[in-house]
Design a protein around this nucleic acid. Structure first.
Ligand SMILES: NC(=O)c1ccc[n+]([C@@H]2O[C@H](COP(=O)([O-])OP(=O)(O)OC[C@H]3O[C@@H](n4cnc5c(N)ncnc54)[C@H](O)[C@@H]3O)[C@@H](O)[C@H]2O)c1
Ligand SMILES: NC(=O)c1ccc[n+]([C@@H]2O[C@H](COP(=O)([O-])OP(=O)(O)OC[C@H]3O[C@@H](n4cnc5c(N)ncnc54)[C@H](O)[C@@H]3O)[C@@H](O)[C@H]2O)c1
Lengths: 219, 219
DNA sequence: TATATACTGTTCATATTGTCACATTAAATA
DNA sequence: TATTTAATGTGACAATATGAACAGTATATA
């Protein structure tokens, strides 16, 4: 397998995931063809970028006049992104955020399945809960190994995050989505995506104020 | 006010927010000085970038040997980011995610306060709830105008998102953090930050598979 | 069949972002 | 005080990402 078969550009992958989901929506609306123009609009990028992305990802199956056949594109995107396979995850920390995620119905659309939750609070533990059992965190490593879980969501308090991360890594987890407000660092074979909601809000406030100042300056 | 007083680089702002929070942690640990090296480590970036960022943001108050005085840096960051002012937000859609956010204690650290929730489900509405009332969405526009709310969180189902966004924009909201899985588009004086958790998970799976393929290819 | 049309795929130009290297300088040390 | 040291601040560069333009071509139309 050649190196070129891999796509490394981070933003590109994110856009491909977006395109895929937009195409699914188009399809569910009964469309069979998509244009770089529509796709760009829906994804919030320029049409050039859409075409460029498809080109880079070797997905360019467009028709010089009729646009892209949605089915073919979806099939290739699924193959590239691996989304035709069921993507099984666990959630560590079944508090406010963790519980919201466990009850989220939208994952099914993305072929993502939450197979278990883990917590260290005995009051939360319920191995019989259906469809998602909540297990003691002491069983985390064994479960992950046995079930060959590759991706986990981290929704524990900040001070517990690093410890759990170590356990996950040791047990073979290779991707972690972290909600705790520490910037966890990825290792060589461990990818981490940090989501910090409070930071996003602070960011928004900066832009809002920025815009106001600019408006004030322009008068 | 000169144009140069504004910082436009998107990533830069995000990093400044990160630096600020790391500095707060340093401070709470009793430190009084910070080095670009530590800061970079904690923020997951190179020390050069930290210094460059401070330089670009006109925050360079470092001491050629002793690093940066945390207090001065924090003060300037607060002034730049506007985080010394209480940042009041509302949450539209008090379902699973919305409720988790309303009950989140961590916002206080960031000087963010959730002042109200809004929903269209009568069963959820409770104007007397303390400390955060849940009001009918029909009162959203009036509330936002009266209270001069500039930033809102959108946690309603996908099909309701665009409609609520219009209402928010019309009422004067200028920043929106959107959790629904549509890529909402920003207007000239409306900033939107889309968070799509399912996409982040799909992303992680791609990287994990990518890494596995690379490992396989290298043997 | 010939022509017009409307879309893609790709090249080239531009903008953005991060790294490197090093001159500079405040503090520590002797 | 003179020297060493350890950090910053920044300009030059490299890498990356995006946008604009357009040649090429499959389809539609007459
Ligand atoms: N709730 C939010 O809206 C929100 C927003 C932004 C960030 N966060 C972050 O997400 C994380 C979770 O937040 P939350 O509001 O759900 O908190 P929470 O306190 O409601 O839930 C945390 C859960 O983790 C469990 N836990 C604690 N230590 C553990 C350990 N060592 N092993 C396993 N489980 C453990 C607790 O029992 C609890 O159930 C926190 O780091 C928080 O800062 C939350
Ligand atoms: N729960 C999750 O973990 C999760 C993860 C990713 C994305 N999301 C997205 O976040 C959004 C909210 O998800 P959720 O799980 O909290 O859903 P939810 O159904 O629990 O909550 C949605 C809330 O919005 C309210 N609502 C519906 N229409 C409204 C309207 N027009 N005006 C005001 N309120 C209205 C509902 O009454 C409900 O309380 C959805 O778009 C979902 O796709 C959720």
């Amino acid at each position: 397998m050649k190196k070129q078969d891999f796509i490394v550009q981070k933003e590109l992958i994110q856009r491909l995931v977006r395109y895929k989901n937009i195409l699914l929506k188009f399809k569910s609306m009964g469309l069979s063809k998509a244009f770089s123009d529509n796709l760009g609009d829906a994804a919030g990028v320029s049409s050039s970028l859409v075409r460029k992305d498809f080109s880079l990802a070797h997905l360019a199956v467009g028709n010089k006049r009729g646009g892209y056949p949605i089915d073919v594109l979806l099939q290739r995107l699924d193959a590239l992104l691996g989304t035709q396979i069921l993507q099984r995850i666990v959630i560590v920390g079944c508090g406010k955020i963790g519980t919201a995620l466990m009850n989220y119905k939208g994952f099914a659309n993305e072929n993502v399945e939450v197979v278990a939750g883990f917590d260290n609070n005995p009051a939360r533990i319920n191995p019989a809960a259906a469809p998602i059992p909540i297990l003691p965190v002491s069983q985390l490593a064994a479960f992950v190994k046995e079930q060959d879980i590759q991706v986990a969501v981290l929704a524990v308090p900040e001070n517990a995050a690093a410890g759990i991360l170590d356990q996950l890594a040791a047990a073979g987890v290779q991707g972690v989505l972290n909600f705790s407000p520490v910037q966890l660092k990825a290792g060589s074979s461990l990818f981490i995506q940090n989501i910090n909601i409070a930071f996003e809000i602070e960011n928004l406030f900066y832009y809002v104020r920025f815009n106001q100042r600019r408006a004030a300056a322009e008068t």
